[in-house]
Amino acid sequence: MVSSMKNLIFIALVSWFIAGCASNNTSVYSQLGGQPKVEQIVDNFITEIEFDPIMFEYFKDSDIGRFREKMIEHLCFLTGGPCEYTGDTMVQVHTGMNVTESDFNHGVDLFIAAMNKADVPHPLQNKVLAVMAPTRKEIIYL
């Protein structure tokens, strides 16, 4: 039925329209609640890593204090907060680690768990993931 195809196209267009309206000028950083929430997410993420054998392997020789500081900066910067990222590039950090796709996906799951434990609502979690997603190609298989 042609009308069904029209319905589908209509729904697609409405979705795009809603998507456009929803992307207002308030930064994801502000929607999160600023620096305290960013720090809470990163602290939770570090706890997730500490209790996870797969992820801990990548971090066993890391300076966790420095990782915490730089990841807070990076997350603040990526979500549109008033921060400058002063750490190494994602490519520099991950080169030689040979992070596999499955371990990356596992890391994303831990990061989602960290956001859950920081009471970040699901739609806002997706917006955080959307700004972080482009860094994947600077992380895996290096």
């Binding site: 809603i18 998507a19 929803a22 699901h122 739609p123 997706n126 917006k127 959307a130």
Partner: peptide, 9 residues
């Protein structure tokens, strides 16, 4: 599309 419809995927 992550978060594309009012924050929903």
């Amino acid at each position: 599309h992550l978060g594309a419809v009012g924050g929903y995927n």
